[in-house]
Each structure stands twice: as structure tokens, then as C-alpha cells.
Design a protein around this nucleic acid. Structure first.
Lengths: 176, 176
DNA sequence: CTTGCTTGGCTATCTGCATTAGCTTTAATG
DNA sequence: CATTAAAGCTAATGCAGATAGCCAAGCAAG
């Protein structure tokens, strides 16, 4: 439902209607709207992590970067509501949430490891990659790319450019 | 108020309370909550455009890119609610909204012009830059960068990397 | 069989917010 | 001084979330 009506418009009334049940009946299964939202948040983060992990296995370096970027974008385009959910709250409470977030971070770090970056560079690279992926994909999902120009191509070039940046960082690290 | 309580939590009840007035009295000044939100959206986009334009005057190339990127990030950190508002709806209706969005696009295109990109590259570059800026800044505003590492530095390096990417695109365009 | 418990629905009710209708006050204008 | 527009108010409606408490179906144990 989050994917269909949008994360912000997810309501218990709509869920109850969809299930052919009165609204209060839902409270036999969930504690509150906020609790339901938290579950969707966790689900989204877990699925996103799984998609990224699956894309990364058996690849390394630029290959892995491109594959994971595509998997990330693919998940968001397929499940925009669930993805929006993953960003809605700064975790901290739910253990499964924290765990799922750590899994995503692990994949990203594994990819970047393949570039042989200096320790100082890794955090910057993680932040940059997250920013890149999240920015592109959320603008795309929000309908921000109106020009009649191939969006796939723009994404590919953005990722390729970042790949080049990572390689230049790595080169600077090995031969300072 | 959007900046203080968050864009999602902006409510007429809160506005009325802040103004020391009963809720229905607001309808003498606005048509609805949605109308108020639209005004905040337009305001945010206008202010963002002004900040970017101001940063761009008198600069070009990498200088302009860095200055505008800093202005963008600065505006969002100062006015997170207003910035979130600018992204909430895909314009289309309000003329001032469309105009403000065009102004932002103009600044970005002016900067990229300075790099001497091929026509084909411009759209990709605009999209990439928007993705970069929006992604970094919205993750930062959402509290996504928890590591105890200088966020300013990460942002500077991300922008510098993109600057290098643009230069490589330009080089490929002039000498194919 | 029957007693009794769990499950999962229900109605009724309360709260908070957006909205509309209609009244009143204030102050500027003629 | 009368009129009128601006801007407040109360009252009432509708909807969403939440809570309390009731009820029927299914099933286990006696």
C-alpha cells in the first residue's frame, strides 16, 4: 500500500478498507499507526540491503559499483513507498532496523574496499555514494526528470563519473 | 514554522497557536492548509534560487560550482523545512512555482555552460548535479551522517570529484 | 457434550485537526 | 454618524487515530 498510495498517505483507514475490515479491528494486529510504519521502514531497509547484497556477490571494483547502483535504483523504482519509509526516521530504537541499516552499510563498504582507498577516504566515499544514489533516485521517483532524455543514460554516467573519482582517490593514496 | 517543527508536521492548529488566534480565523487569510503549503513551497524555491544566483554572480567554472554548491547546502541547513517543501509536489499548477523552478534551473545551466560541455552532456550534468546536491544535503539534514568525520570535507570532496568529472566530459567533447 | 479460553472481529466513544457557516467587533471611509 | 470591509469569534460537521468493552467462532480439556 505504501508503494501504491505513497508513504505519506499510508493510513490505517486505508489499510482497513483494503482488508475489508473496520478500522479498530487492526489494533488486534498492530499497536498503532506508528508501529505499522516502523515495520514498513524495517522491511524496506531489509529488502534494499538484500537487493544490494545480491547484486554485489561475485563482483568487485567498478563492476560491483555499477551492479549495486543499478540494484539500488531498481529497488526504489519498484518500491518507492517502501524506500521513502526507510528515510523517514533516524532509527535508534528498533534493533532490526539498526541491523538492517548496518547490512546496507556493509555492502557499500565492501564495494569501496575494492578500490583500495586510504582509510581517511572511506567515510567520504560512503557518504558521497549514498548521496549520489539517494539523490538521483529520489528525484527520479518524485518525477523530477522531465526532459525527454534517457534517464538510464544519465544514471550510468553519474555512476561512471563517481567510479573515476574513486579511482583517482585510490591512485592518490597509493602514490602520494 | 516549517523549519522548526518540520514540513510534515506543519498544521493549521500549530500556526493558529503560534499567532495567538483561533484556528478558523486563519481562513480569513488562506484558503486551506494545502494553499498555505503551496505558498511555503514557492517561498522555499524562490529563496533557494536567490541564494544560488547570488553565489554564482562574478564566478565561473569550478569557482562557480563550488560557490553554488555551498550556497545550496547552506540554505538547506538553515531552512530545512522550507527546502523539504520545495520537493513535496511536482509543481505544474502555480505560475510562481514554475517560474521559481525555472530560475533555479537557469543558474545550474549557467554554471555548466562554463565548462563547455557538449549539448548531449548538459542534461546529464544537470541531473547529476541536482542529484548530488539534493542527496547529500537531504541525508545530512535527516541526520544520516553519524560518523565523527568532518561533513564539510566530505561535501567539498564530493563537489570536487564532480568538478573533475565535468572537466573530463568537456575534454572528451572538444577532442573526441 | 460442554465449559471455557483465545482469536479477531464489532460498535460506541473520545480526541485532534481541517473545514464551513454565520455572528460580532473594529476601524476606516463616505 | 452610517456603512462597510477586515478579521476575529463560536458552533457544528466530518474524518482519522485510538481506546474500551462486547460478541461470535473455533477449539482444547474435562
Amino acid at each position: 500500500m505504501a508503494d501504491e498510495v505513497g508513504w505519506e498517505r499510508l493510513s490505517l483507514a486505508a489499510v482497513a478498507g483494503r482488508l475489508g475490515v473496520r478500522l479498530p479491528s487492526l489494533y488486534k494486529h498492530i499497536a498503532s499507526l506508528e508501529a505499522l510504519r516502523t515495520e514498513v521502514r524495517v522491511l524496506g531497509l531489509q529488502e534494499l540491503g538484500e537487493a544490494m547484497t545480491a547484486a554485489a556477490v561475485g563482483r568487485s571494483g567498478s563492476d560491483a559499483l555499477v551492479a549495486v547502483a543499478d540494484a539500488y535504483r531498481g529497488y526504489v523504482l519498484e518500491h518507492p513507498g517502501r524506500y521513502a519509509a526507510t528515510l523517514a526516521a533516524p532509527l535508534g530504537d528498533h534493533p532490526a532496523h539498526v541491523q538492517a541499516a548496518a547490512a546496507v552499510l556493509r555492502v557499500v563498504e565492501a564495494i569501496l574496499d575494492g578500490y583500495g582507498l586510504a582509510a581517511d577516504d572511506t567515510v567520504d566515499a560512503v557518504r558521497s555514494l549514498r548521496a549520489l544514489l539517494h539523490g538521483f533516485v529520489s528525484l527520479e521517483a518524485a518525477g523530477g526528470f522531465r526532459m525527454p532524455v534517457d534517464v538510464d543514460r544519465s544514471f550510468r554516467r553519474l555512476v561512471a563519473g563517481f567510479d573515476a573519482t574513486l579511482q583517482s582517490w585510490a591512485a592518490a593514496a597509493t602514490a602520494p
